[in-house]
Simulated assay, not measured.
Amino acid sequence: MSLTYSAYQRARRRSRQAWAIILLGAATIVAALTWFFLSGQFAVSEPAVSGPVDAPVFNPAWMKPLPGASAVAPAKALDALERLRVKGKAPQTGYDRTQFGQAWLDVDRNGCDTRNDILRRDLSAVVFAEGSSCKVAAGDFMEPYTGLRVSFRRGQDTSASVQIDHVVALSNAWQTGAQQLTPQQRQTLANDPLNLLAADGPANVKKGAGDAATWLPANKNFRCHYVARQISVKTAYNLWVTPAEKDAMKRILGSCPDQQTIYSRR
């Protein structure tokens, strides 16, 4: 009987040892995975922020007002929407990017081109290229269309991951009244900080020339601001909305009826 009890004790010890080895191995795996994901070996995006999201327009410390840009008065976006003309889209005939001037000019004459102005405005922890006070080399921001934290690094293979989006696409503007603007007014529209946002490259490509009826940000917390910004741009440049576009805007603003127009306070 003593032999049986002794064998039982040895079996129990071996069992405890086996379980200890298993638990130690599991802890090691968990620790390794934690290090892998949090140490930068694998980029983990932050989840979308909760609550309404806003976005900047103008920083008077280093941006200058554009000559000829129309002011947008503070008002409820829904009221401003009701004041916009409602028409079908005009033909796209004659549209070309050059109708809005050369891309990314230094229109406000602050010494920096528009793309770098917007990167500097929208990104945090901005790093400039060596020897430059304009050329943005790196930065981070909470990207508005996805709601995820995105890093920008200038380079042949990385710059396109963050693009500068025209909130009202230039092709859409052309079909909703910009054909009647002067070349100078169109150039201002294409470079107006009100109409520009740093955005996730793939999301911007997916948007294309879509209006609110065909594309909205995946980040639902940003949709009220986004629609109000489109309304503000169309107000500033006397553009119209299509019936479907207006219906989509009203649907979005129905969840935020006190949303204001977006204006720069410049």
Rank of each mutant, 00 (worst) to 15 (best):
L189P: 01
S171T: 15
Q179E: 10
T182R: 11
N191G: 14
I164P: 07
N195C: 12
L196R: 03
D192E: 07
T188F: 00
A198Y: 01
N172V: 00
N172S: 14
I164W: 06
Q175V: 06
Q187F: 07
P183V: 00
G177N: 11
S171L: 15
L170Q: 07
L189T: 07
G177T: 01
V167Y: 02
T182P: 10
A178L: 05
T176A: 04
Q180W: 12
R186H: 06
T182M: 11
I164D: 14
A190F: 11
L197R: 07
Q180C: 08
N195Q: 12
N172A: 12
L189G: 00
L196A: 09
H166L: 04
D192F: 12
L196S: 00
A169Q: 06
R186N: 07
Q175M: 11
N195P: 13
N191M: 09
L197Q: 01
Q185E: 11
T176F: 05
W174G: 00
A198K: 00
A198F: 01
L194N: 13
T182K: 10
N195A: 11
G177D: 09
Q187T: 15
A169W: 09
L196M: 04
T182H: 13
S171I: 13
P193L: 12
L194M: 07
L197M: 11
L181G: 12
N195R: 10
Q185V: 03
T182L: 13
Q180D: 15
N191H: 15
G177L: 09
Q185M: 08
P183F: 02
Q180M: 14
L189K: 01
L194E: 02
P183H: 05
W174Y: 06
A169N: 14
V168I: 14
I164E: 10
L181N: 10
D165T: 05
L181W: 02
T176P: 09
V168Y: 04
A190D: 02
Q185F: 09
V167F: 09
A178M: 05
A190Q: 04
N172L: 14
P183K: 06
Q175A: 11
A198P: 00
Q187P: 06
Q175R: 15
L189C: 01
G177F: 03
L170C: 05
L189E: 00
N172F: 05
P193Q: 09
N191L: 12
V168D: 07
Q184G: 04
V168A: 03
L197N: 07
A178Q: 06
Q175P: 10
L197E: 00
H166I: 07
A198L: 04
S171E: 15
V167Q: 09
N191S: 15
R186K: 08
N195I: 01
S171Q: 15
P183L: 02
L170F: 01
L194F: 11
A169G: 14
Q175D: 10
L197W: 13
H166D: 05
W174C: 03
A169S: 12
P183M: 06
A173W: 10
G177E: 02
Q187R: 12
T188S: 08
N172W: 05
Q180P: 14
L181A: 05
L189M: 09
I164V: 13
L194Q: 06
D165P: 08
T182I: 13
Q187S: 12
V168G: 00
A178H: 00
S171D: 01
A178W: 03
A178T: 06
N191R: 13
A178S: 10
R186D: 03
L170S: 03
I164F: 02
L197F: 11
W174R: 07
Q179K: 15
G177H: 10
L189F: 12
